[in-house]
Computed example of a mutant assay.
Amino acid sequence: MILLGIDDLARREQARELLAWGAERYWGLSPLPQLAAGERGKPWFPACPQYHFNLSHSGSFALCALSDQPVGVDIQEMRAAWRPSLVERTCSPEERAWLSSLGDRGEDFAQLWALKESGGKQTGYGLPYPPSRQAVPLPPLGEPYDPGTIYTLGETKFRVYLGKNWRGAACGLEVPPQEIQWVSGLGREN
Results as ranks from 00 to 15, higher is better:
residue 41 G to R: 04
residue 58 S to E: 05
residue 86 L to D: 12
residue 42 K to V: 06
residue 63 L to V: 01
residue 78 M to Y: 04
residue 68 D to T: 05
residue 90 T to R: 06
residue 26 Y to W: 09
residue 25 R to H: 09
residue 35 L to Q: 02
residue 34 Q to K: 00
residue 23 A to N: 01
residue 37 A to K: 15
residue 85 S to A: 05
residue 43 P to I: 00
residue 56 S to W: 04
residue 39 E to F: 03
residue 78 M to G: 02
residue 33 P to V: 00
residue 79 R to L: 12
residue 45 F to S: 01
residue 32 L to G: 02
residue 82 W to F: 14
residue 55 L to S: 05
residue 72 G to T: 11
residue 61 F to E: 12
residue 60 S to P: 12
residue 37 A to P: 14
residue 37 A to Q: 10
residue 65 A to C: 07
residue 74 D to Q: 09
residue 41 G to V: 04
residue 94 E to Y: 01
residue 90 T to F: 09
residue 68 D to R: 14
residue 17 E to V: 02
residue 23 A to S: 07
residue 29 L to T: 00
residue 86 L to H: 10
residue 21 W to K: 11
residue 23 A to M: 08
residue 31 P to T: 01
residue 34 Q to L: 10
residue 14 Q to N: 11
residue 65 A to Y: 11
residue 71 V to F: 12
residue 51 Y to C: 10
residue 26 Y to P: 04
residue 46 P to C: 05
residue 87 V to N: 01
residue 71 V to L: 13
residue 83 R to S: 04
residue 40 R to S: 15
residue 97 A to Q: 04
residue 77 E to L: 07
residue 8 D to R: 07
residue 32 L to V: 00
residue 15 A to H: 11
residue 49 P to A: 10
residue 63 L to S: 06
residue 77 E to S: 14
residue 32 L to N: 04
residue 14 Q to C: 09
residue 11 R to E: 15
residue 43 P to S: 02
residue 8 D to H: 14
residue 62 A to D: 12
residue 85 S to K: 14
residue 57 H to R: 11
residue 68 D to A: 06
residue 48 C to N: 13
residue 94 E to T: 03
residue 48 C to I: 08
residue 25 R to E: 15
residue 46 P to D: 09
residue 60 S to L: 13
residue 10 A to V: 01
residue 77 E to Q: 12
residue 70 P to G: 09
